[in-house]
Amino acid sequence: MAKVLVVTSGKGGVGKTTSTAALGAALAQMGQSVVVIDFDVGLRNLDLVMGAERRVVFDLINVVQGVAKLSQALIRDKRLENLWLLPASQTRDKDALTEEGIRRVITELKTKFDWILCDSPAGIERGATLAMRYADEAIIVTNPEVSSVRDSDRIIGMLDSKTVRAERGERVEKHLLITRYDSARAARGEMLSIDDVLEILATPLLGIVPESQDVLKASNVGSPVTLNNANSAPARAYMDAVRRLMGETVTMKVPVERKGLMDRLLRRRAA
């Protein structure tokens, strides 16, 4: 049974696209068949982060409008044969995305893939609502920072009211993915801690991705971080997150070195 997942956040620049690429690749690395869809019409970037920018011929809008067939628009990843990309259009006709058109595309993709990952644009406008519209589950990408947490709260409210599932009285299962986490700064009380964010957003935690240079290195060369450096801390965090998505129980750990007793005591004091 295919699962439709939206990767969303409200705020821009928190790591939606990076996370979509990394999670999509990680799922594919575990043998699942995966398609990642870029919903950011006009500002597409998933193709670039995945290193497929020169292979885009047709896009999501072409398929929605019937100009191209789905099979013509899908781009197969060069490294993983069971990972595919459906790019966004770079032209600016956002209104070309219709709810009915997206429904048709997703219904067709569901017959071909195990996982459909929708990379939402930032904001709460049409693109973002369409990306979440048909989702079964949602990954809310949040940075431990006030504006990101506030916007995530807003998006959580929308997931509970504007999705097809919500309208049917069903639930969109929500997962929180905390990215750009710096445990040293959190320990010093300079950054919201994981517990703070969880308490405020009251959403189950899927994973903690540490702030890391490996993320930029991976996007520089157009390779999801789980492929580019599988042993790096962010790659391990994404791999753990994917195992949890697939139902495995994986101990939640902040993927950096353990802190000593002194730090923990002081962290409690700071919190």
Partner: peptide, 12 residues
């Protein structure tokens, strides 16, 4: 002083 508790309280 730690700023995270302030962030947390403002958000709540």
């Amino acid at each position: 002083t730690a700023s995270a508790p302030v962030a947390r309280e403002r958000l709540q």
